[in-house]
């Protein structure tokens, strides 16, 4: 298993666009936004916080969405289309291990990305580290798993790699929108924000654990539920060829 993860990790590092978007992009975006003075001035309309403080959780959403809803479904669907999964089935190792390895690689890449984001935020812009570290880690992992489960569901249902890419992009855009990536969440109408609170990968829970106290268990519960439900359906309906 370790060898499969190791190999998949090397393959990931050989795709420059993947590395840039999944690992470096959030930190780069933070640097660009942070370079704008207005965005790093405390805003009285917004609890006296700076825009960049409040935007950190949305930057985490970028990483999670990219890994779970772009990289995962396209890689898996491509592996199926090219017969990589089938070749695995001729060996003593079940091809499901390859999918698990993909998710593990994503967890590693996601952790790297978030650590980089925190370091840049702390050192350059004096942004606090998450106030509730345990809550943050749990939310991050659940957010990752829930989006991965949805990504695998897309890969399971899409007839081919192209379709998987297309469908996944639609979900990706929705998640990014509700995660406040395109428009900061305080500009979104309340009812949209309420929806966003419950949608994977749990932007509200990320926000809570970063800026305030523990994440709301209900939010985490929903993420766990989505993970189990989407994961089960994906596993049941997955085609290996």
């Amino acid at each position: 298993m370790l060898k499969i993860v190791n190999t998949e990790w090397k393959l990931f590092l050989r795709e420059p666009s993947m590395v840039v978007f999944a690992v470096l992009f959030p930190a780069i975006l933070l640097s660009v936004l942070g370079a704008i003075p207005a965005l790093r001035t405390p805003d009285p309309n917004f609890d006296n916080q700076r825009f960049i403080d409040a935007y950190m959780s949305s930057l985490v959403v970028v990483t999670l969405a990219f890994l779970g809803l772009n990289k995962l479904p396209t890689t898996v669907a491509t592996y199926r289309e090219k017969g990589v999964l089938r070749r695995f089935s001729t060996t003593p190792v079940h091809p499901a291990r390859l999918l698990v390895a993909q998710v593990l690689v994503n967890v590693i890449a996601g952790v790297l990305s978030v650590v980089l984001l925190m370091v840049v935020g702390r050192v350059v812009f004096d942004i606090d580290l998450p106030h509730h570290p345990l809550g943050f880690v749990v939310t991050f992992l659940l957010g990752m798993l829930s989006l991965s489960a949805i990504g695998l569901l897309v890969a399971a249902w899409a007839p081919n790699a192209r379709a998987a890419g297309g469908w996944a992009t639609v979900v990706f855009m929705l998640v990014m929108f509700f995660g406040g990536v395109y428009l900061p969440r305080f500009l979104l109408p309340d009812f949209l924000n309420t929806i966003g609170e419950y949608l994977p990968p749990g932007v509200e829970a990320l926000q809570d654990s970063w800026l305030g106290a523990a994440p709301d268990p209900v939010h985490l519960g929903v993420l766990a539920l989505v993970t189990v439900a989407a994961g089960t359906v994906a596993a049941k309906s997955f085609r290996w060829e």
């Binding site: 393959l11 090219k82 017969g83 990589v84 001729t90």
Partner: peptide
Amino acid sequence: AQLQQSDLPDRI
């Protein structure tokens, strides 16, 4: 088994 249609990942 060598399958009729089966590739490996491009960059492996």
